[in-house]
């Protein structure tokens, strides 16, 4: 069987298209590359959607946490502490069993017990909490002069926020937020190891990598393949966020722009 045939059979296997049965023996390198790559679709799906939706909630959380009003500040603080203070792995488990119990009471929410929605919700809330903390830090380090200038121009309320506060906050937070985005994509590999079932063996990249490692009892092939995919993904994200960083700082000369540095710091 040629490699093209394998790609045609298994390229979209993680979504349920193509060959139904996974290869069971005599695994070729091509099969491992194709299936693990196919699993990456899920990692990108979870990461991208959680990041997009999380961004909006994160900005709201940061503004609420910086608010002088207690009834806005306290819930935001608690939300951020809850999701940053506990392991993502446990959050996944808890959420899955919570959704399972809910399903018994309200059948309408049954979609939450499958990974595509349930895990996405958890990742969305989780990344919102982490990014919210980053944005909060940035909000607090906006130079006083910027705000005074805004006041002097008579800006207030929404105009002041979206013309001055928000762009500056984003600019300051962007390097840390890039990191957060990268480690969010890494965290998506936890989904299928934490209760959420991989129906009909439709899993993510790590799911297939560990499938091959279990079947061949040889971790030295599938995991390096997985590593390759993730390094490429990481570089792509860093590149994309770098472009955005350049755009956010387009008023500065190239030498003055803050550099993006990858700092590993988040296992959740």
């Amino acid at each position: 069987m040629s490699c093209w045939q394998t790609i045609a059979d298994y390229g979209l296997r993680s979504l349920g298209y193509g060959e139904r049965l996974l290869p069971r023996s005599d695994f070729t390198l091509c099969q491992q590359f194709t299936l693990i790559g196919s699993g990456m679709i899920w990692n990108i799906y979870f990461g991208a959607l959680a990041l997009l939706a999380g961004f909006i909630l994160a900005v709201a959380l940061a503004v609420a946490k910086a608010s002088p009003r207690r009834r806005f500040r306290k819930p935001a603080e608690w939300f951020i502490f809850l999701f940053r203070g506990s392991p993502l792995f446990i959050q996944f488990f808890f959420a899955y069993f919570l959704f399972l119990s809910l399903k018994g009471v309200v059948p309408a929410v049954s979609a939450l017990t499958s990974a595509w929605l349930g895990a996405l919700v958890v990742l969305f809330l989780n990344t919102a909490a982490y990014s919210g903390e980053i944005f909060y830090g940035a909000l607090r380090s906006i130079p006083r002069g910027d705000l005074e200038a805004a006041d002097a121009y008579g800006l207030s309320g929404w105009t002041r926020f979206h013309r001055v506060v928000f762009p500056t906050m984003l600019r300051l937070a962007w390097p840390a937020y890039t990191n957060e985005a990268i480690f969010l994509f890494h965290a998506t590999t936890l989904v299928f190891f934490s209760g959420f079932p991989a129906l009909q063996q439709r899993g993510d990249a790590l799911y297939y990598a560990s499938y091959f490692a279990d079947k061949t009892y040889n971790p030295f092939v599938p995991y390096p393949i997985l590593a390759f995919y993730f390094i490429v993904l990481t570089l792509l994200i860093a590149g994309g966020f770098g472009l955005m960083n350049a755009r956010l700082n387009r008023h500065l000369s190239a030498a003055e722009r803050p550099r993006l540095r990858l700092r590993p710091k988040l296992i959740r």
Partner: peptide, 8 residues
């Protein structure tokens, strides 16, 4: 640890 998920 920068490019590859730790769980891997």
């Amino acid at each position: 640890v920068r490019g590859v998920p730790d769980i891997a």
